[in-house]
């Protein structure tokens, strides 16, 4: 019991340490209160924003948009990645689009998306979809391609039909790589939803944060930042948990690797 507590302290001590340094810097005025409001003030702002429902309202909207774009990207990205890995024609048709488009910041297209899909949620969802599509497709592709030939031959040798080979050998073999792609895309979906809401919107956490800091309510802005942090962290943990349940035969990847 005592050793468990000690171990937890040894693991997590930096977090309270950082928070304490923050509080000291804020209280002594070494760093402007605008940049680092006292944690007590931030906590009060979180409480107030929870009470009047602002935080939950805006968080719900941001989360809905991010989830919609992300879900679309999963469906299209995995399908496309699998098709490209399985068919030479698809590979030849789409590979240049992905290898050339990958390093290009798609966020620059947001104004075009506003004209095409309107100022509301749809333009944001589509941009999230586009940004997330790249890492998911590319990882699904490499995952499918990376499956050991010997496993496929062994399954075929034992009389597996092509369908069985796909569902029982190829897809499980590609699963770790597919999840790696999902993990790369998750924070991207949050970045895009926040930044598009900051640029032009009157709802969502991005708007909430930029509005609060434009009206000099820094503690409230930090309440919004805290909400984004909690959402990002929770979703990431959920994804890791899901990954370890689905890919029960392979441990690890608690953290992000080479991606």
């Amino acid at each position: 019991m005592a050793s468990a507590v000690l171990r937890a302290v040894a693991r997590w001590y930096p977090v309270p340490l950082v928070l304490a340094v923050w509080e000291v810097l804020s209280r002594t005025g070494a760093v402007s209160k605008r940049l680092m409001p006292s944690l007590v003030e931030i906590a009060a702002a979180v409480g107030a924003a929870m009470d009047n429902g602002d935080l939950l309202f805006h968080a719900g909207i941001s989360l809905g948009r991010a989830a919609a774009g992300y879900a679309l990207a999963i469906v299209a990205g995995v399908l496309l990645g699998v098709a490209m890995a399985r068919s030479r024609l698809f590979d030849a048709l789409f590979e240049p689009l992905f290898s050339f488009g990958y390093p290009v910041p798609k966020i620059a297209l947001y104004p075009v998306f506003i004209f095409a899909f309107g100022l509301g949620s749809l333009s944001k969802v589509m941009l999230i979809f586009l940004e997330c599509l790249y890492p998911i497709t590319v990882n699904a592709f490499y995952g499918m391609r990376g499956v050991d030939r010997v496993h496929v031959w062994a399954a075929e040798n034992m009389g597996a039909t092509p369908r069985q080979v796909f569902w029982r050998v190829l897809l499980p073999g590609a699963a770790p790589s597919i999840f790696a792609g999902l993990r790369v895309a998750l924070p991207i979906s949050l970045i895009v939803v926040i930044i598009t809401e900051m640029i032009g919107e009157s709802r969502g956490l991005g708007y909430y944060i930029s509005y609060a800091s434009a009206s000099f309510e820094y503690a409230t802005a930090f309440a919004g930042v805290a909400a984004v942090a909690v959402i990002g962290f929770t979703l990431d943990r959920l994804l890791v948990w899901l990954r370890n349940r689905v890919i029960f035969w392979e441990r690890g990847a608690a953290f992000i690797g080479a991606a």
């Binding site: 977090v15 402007s32 940049l35 944060i209 800091s213 434009a214 000099f216 942090a229």
Partner: peptide, 17 residues
């Protein structure tokens, strides 16, 4: 703890500062 947080959220605060 901070890795999955999009860093862009602090932009308005940094701009104000």
């Amino acid at each position: 703890l901070t890795y999955p947080v999009p860093k862009i959220v602090v932009l308005p605060i940094l701009i104000a500062w």
